[in-house]
Design a binder for these strands. Structure first.
Lengths: 206, 206, 206, 206
DNA sequence: CATGAATGAGGCTTCATTCAT
DNA sequence: AATGAATGAAGCCTCATTCAT
């Protein structure tokens, strides 16, 4: 029987991860020192190293958390049968997050992307995130094509990639400039999605 | 080595910048040491510091080069009057780049985005890149709306943002996974753009 | 190593300062590397940088210590009412220091003077040292003049400057050549001071 | 027959030495880079290295120049037979130098002293300077003692040391603060010298 | 379990010096 | 003889990590 409950351990982990996220969003992975993270978490280095064996591991754990969170968003939205509604839902989920938190999330995502370029573990996480999103989107597209909602000439995977771009581009642009007009962005996004829908005319496509 | 031509100096600068780009794309800004860059450029530290007064400055110069290059792409494409053709052109320009170089460019872009989050100078460059792209796109959209090509209910700026996402998303996805099927991606992109064109039906916009 | 007493921290500081002094006296500020100081203090660079944030700061702290020490000497001597006795006292204080330590002190002083020429902070310290000595001497002279001991035609400040020269010159000469005959030097110094005393003849002052 | 006259070579040497002196007085030996010196001398590094094989050598040459100049001062003054007049002469010589040049000279002296502590060659120069001054002063004192001007109980060498302090202290104090009142300083100095003169009373001395 | 002082490898940068032109 | 671009050793400092208390 450990002296501390499992829950307490997990709470400490979270505490560190949150401190790290805050630092990372503010200063980036490489400008955030372990000292910064310790200070933010109000913990000593020794304590932090009880929960994570390296800074790398903290980054990875943080990226993993992001992945799970993002997965949650899309899973929640996927419940909606209607294709267009999915975008609404995703947008709503995004809107549900407090502004500051969202901004931080965007920055962390960008940071994680860059980190993925040289840390294979992080890359793995990013790819898994991308792949699961891709798969979700592709499935939706395929269903819509079967229903005749979407032009069957379009490659479902490719549509999924573009849909991902909608969100990744928004994350990037909001990360760089929080002032972007999101509702209008979503409106355009939906108009474009709607435009890919079957309209009786053949979309020559390319 | 006595006084040397201006061209030689500029060539050296390029040599260093290319070496740096190569390192940065391979290992990221923060894992590339000056030593790495020097080795890649086949130059001594002292020589490199004749041309750039800090690693930071190399990063910034590199980001600036990226900005100018990106600007060139879109300017070249903007010559085309037809709205849809713009996408073709941009895609062609992208395709015109050798595969490896493109891949490297994508990685550098991602790297630069992340760097922008904490280096105000780099952020400035990124913002300027984004802004000039945005403006180009918005102008195209406005012209298309005047011609009746695009639904006038859509905010031109917002459309521009989404168009930027098309490309940024592609850059990100290709950066993370070079295997992405670009032609199909472009096809979908064009289909979606075409879908925003005026079709006689009102796009309610949300 | 957990939290440690305030005294221990101060002891470490002293340990570093002493190591630095030793290096500085032996090799000068600019030929003493941080590595030298660390080795002398038997501490790692990281440890030293916990206590001083730069080599510069070590130099300044050392100069400040010298200042305080010098202040102590003169303050101790000032207790003596009799004018001539002051010189005796100062000389005694000097003699009270172990030979090696004195030699080191002289070298450090010379080093600090030179450093003062380009480090404004050090210059500030040197000036303050000089000023407080000057003031002490001038006060003594004024009192001696009131008692009729010293020719009232002489500017007390100027006398103080010359008195300072007695000591600074000795420091310099001993720093350059430890073999100087100090007792004889002091004897002459006192004879000269005595000579400025009122003797019934008017000293025309030039 | 060299392409350049001996005189031209010497002129270049002087040009470099003057540039170096200027830099050294302004920034000290160790903060003056060869680049600084080259810039000040309007010469390229290669050119400078034709005349001096190292920075060290420039420092030493400069110190040697200072030594010779100082020697000239005292030699000039020594012509005067009268003891007190020597001080007048030395003071006059000092006064004869333009203010700025003097200030620079003081700083260089201080710099040279410090450098002497760790460069045996420079130390040799300083010692030689000191020794020749000492000898000159001692000789004067001995002569004065023979004439009965100065208390014969005083060690001529010791008096010489103190006389040197008069000047070294002034150099130091003026180096640190150009505002010092030199005429008054000299007046006191002379009063003190006069006080060591034989007055009929025995100066108990020590 | 926690603390935080200490470690030390390694990064960025400077600058005295060289040498091809 | 002069030039100035290039060299590369070495210095200062940071920071992820450890471990005695």
């Amino acid at each position: 029987m450990p002296k501390v409950t499992e829950a307490h351990l997990e709470a400490r982990r979270q505490q560190i991860l949150e401190a790290a996220s805050s630092c990372f969003a503010r200063k980036g992975f490489h400008h955030s020192t372990m000292h910064d993270i310790c200070a933010e978490a109000q913990l000593s280095p020794g304590a932090v190293y009880r929960y994570f064996s390296s800074k790398e591991e903290i980054i990875e754990a943080m990226a993993e958390e992001e992945r799970v969170r993002a997965l949650g968003y899309i899973e929640a939205a996927k419940q909606r049968g209607d294709t267009l509604e999915l975008l609404n839902e995703l947008a709503n989920v995004f809107f549900g997050v407090v502004e500051d938190e969202w901004q931080q999330m965007c920055k962390l995502d960008i940071e994680v992307w860059a980190e993925g370029l040289r840390n294979p573990r992080v890359m793995g996480l990013v790819r898994r995130t991308f792949d699961s999103h891709l798969e979700s989107f592709a499935e939706i597209v395929r269903m819509a094509q079967e229903r005749g909602d979407i032009n069957p000439a379009l490659d479902p995977e490719a549509v999924a990639h573009v849909m991902m771009s909608f969100f990744e581009g928004l994350v990037l642009q909001k990360g760089m400039d929080p002032g972007i007009d999101v509702p209008n962005y979503v409106a355009v996004m939906k108009a474009m999605m709607k435009g890919t829908f079957w309209t009786g005319r053949t979309l020559e496509g390319s």
